[in-house]
């Protein structure tokens, strides 16, 4: 579904991603973890080309994301990659329903009424049908992030990317967002998730990637990663987390 081949990215002389080679299979849930500044967010943002790369290639559903292409093609490609941001980035001038229904109409040309009906269903799926008319400012962080997930799902993406979806939330709201993500995973959605929620990784992930210094240092199933981390840096990271 997603394949990184020899991906390198640098900001000036700083190398943010170093020779990334990795795969995410269809219906797989991959959790990316690692200390801050390790390149996790950069990695996930290269998949829908919010960040450019300097060399290598990234295939999404068989399509080379960083190939030379017309902006129209790139927009179409992006519309098929669900992306959830740390800071939600809901559109504050639109209601929850409009946030979800806008892009299917304006990007994909879906009929307004159809899009609104679908949006309502999606809001229901994330448990917020009652808040359809509310504006983002009237919603809690957890509710906003659930609307953001519904907004991404409205484009019917074959895969969803999450960039620290719970890091900006108050602790008591983390659970409701993770519950939505778990349900998504159970439905067979392909997911890649940058997160510090190790409980979520243990429970939902098929594999964990551990990153530091722009490299993927370890790839393992969660059970072995948490109980027997191989790389010394991963061992140190996990022991720091426990304290």
């Amino acid at each position: 579904m997603i394949r990184f081949s020899n991906v390198n990215k640098n900001y000036g002389s700083f190398q943010a991603l170093v020779d990334i080679n990795a795969d995410v299979a269809r219906s797989e849930v991959v959790v990316v973890c690692g200390p801050s500044g390790s390149g996790k967010s950069t990695l996930i943002r290269t998949i829908n080309r919010l960040e450019e790369i300097q060399s290598g290639s990234i295939l999404f559903d068989g399509q080379d994301v960083h190939a030379k292409m017309r902006s129209k093609e790139l927009n179409h490609l992006r519309s098929r990659i669900g992306f959830v941001f740390q800071s939600f980035n809901l559109f504050p001038h639109l209601s929850a329903l409009e946030n979800v229904a806008l892009s299917p109409v304006t990007v994909n040309g879906v009929k307004r009424e159809v899009a609104r009906e679908k949006a309502l269903q999606l809001l229901d799926r994330v448990g917020l049908a009652a808040k359809a008319g509310s504006y983002p400012g009237q919603l809690s962080g957890g509710q906003q992030q659930r609307v953001a997930i519904a907004r991404a799902l409205a484009m019917e993406p074959p895969a969803m990317l999450f960039d620290e979806p719970t890091s900006a939330l108050d602790p008591e709201m983390v659970g409701e967002v993770l519950a939505v993500m778990k349900a998504l995973a159970a439905d067979g959605m392909t997911m890649m998730c940058v997160t510090h929620e190790m409980g979520f990784a243990r429970e939902v992930a098929d594999r964990v990637w551990f990153m530091d210094g722009g490299r993927i240092l370890e790839e393992a199933d969660p059970e072995s990663f948490f109980s027997r981390p191989q790389h010394p840096r991963a061992q140190r990271f996990l022991s720091d987390l426990r304290h």
């Binding site: 829908n48 919010l50 902006s71 129209k72 927009n75 179409h76 490609l77 992006r78 519309s79 098929r80 990659i81 992306f83 941001f85 800071s87 980035n89 809901l90 559109f91 504050p92 001038h93 806008l102 892009s103 304006t106 990007v107 994909n108 953001a148 907004r151 991404a152 484009m155």
Partner: peptide, 27 residues
């Protein structure tokens, strides 16, 4: 963030400006 979110949903630059950025900025 607003532009990133719009682009991630597949909006073109001008589409994002028209539907998302300008309504907020001008208000």
């Amino acid at each position: 963030g607003q532009m990133d979110a719009a682009r991630a949903l597949g909006h073109s630059y001008l589409g994002a400006m028209w539907y998302i950025i300008l309504p907020q900025a001008l208000y």
